[in-house]
């Protein structure tokens, strides 16, 4: 039943956006996390989206063009950490520098908003497909 596929595809979008949200939240809460000098500081993480055929639970999708989405991996941003001069800090190195994660709270917030918007769009798609199924059931009422 093809509307089931539409729901399945929408659900894959919901899952992917929720996981992305989790990763972004991890970045936000660790924006000021420091590590003892000499160890690698926390680095910004992001997800990789890949289009993937939906699982055919209720019959196949009508065309290969119908694709769900999945997260194919979490990647680490290799850009340089922020160096802050703070000799009194517990994690300062010999020259008095502390390494902070390469995270900009603004960038993360924009990404969080984008994830929220995409989540809402997918939710709307699922709801409308459900509504369409309901209309089919109402034909003989």
């Amino acid at each position: 039943m093809s509307l089931m596929t539409a729901i399945e595809v929408g659900a894959s979008g919901l899952t992917a956006q929720r996981r992305r949200f989790e990763v972004l939240m991890g970045n936000l809460v660790n924006a000021n996390t420091t590590q003892p000098a000499g160890t690698e500081p926390y680095r910004r993480k992001d997800v990789l989206f890949t289009a993937t055929p939906p699982e055919a639970t209720f019959g196949a999708a009508f065309d290969d063009a119908v694709q769900g989405v999945e997260i194919s991996g979490v990647v680490t941003d290799r850009s340089e950490p922020r160096k802050v001069h703070d000799p009194g800090h517990e994690h300062a190195d010999r020259e008095g520098y502390v390494l902070y994660p390469n995270i900009n709270a603004m960038t993360e917030m924009v990404n969080v908003m984008s994830a929220t918007r995409s989540y809402e769009a997918n939710l709307q798609a699922v709801n409308l497909a459900k509504e369409m199924q309901q209309k089919t059931l109402e034909i003989l009422r």
Binding site: A6, I7, G10, A51, Q67, V69, A121, N122, A125
Partner: peptide, 18 residues
């Protein structure tokens, strides 16, 4: 129409897929 709904759902699911 229901096939088209699949396509639109697919487009929306892949809104952030490079």
């Amino acid at each position: 129409l229901s096939q088209r709904q699949q396509i639109v759902a697919s487009n929306l699911a892949n809104i952030d897929t490079p």
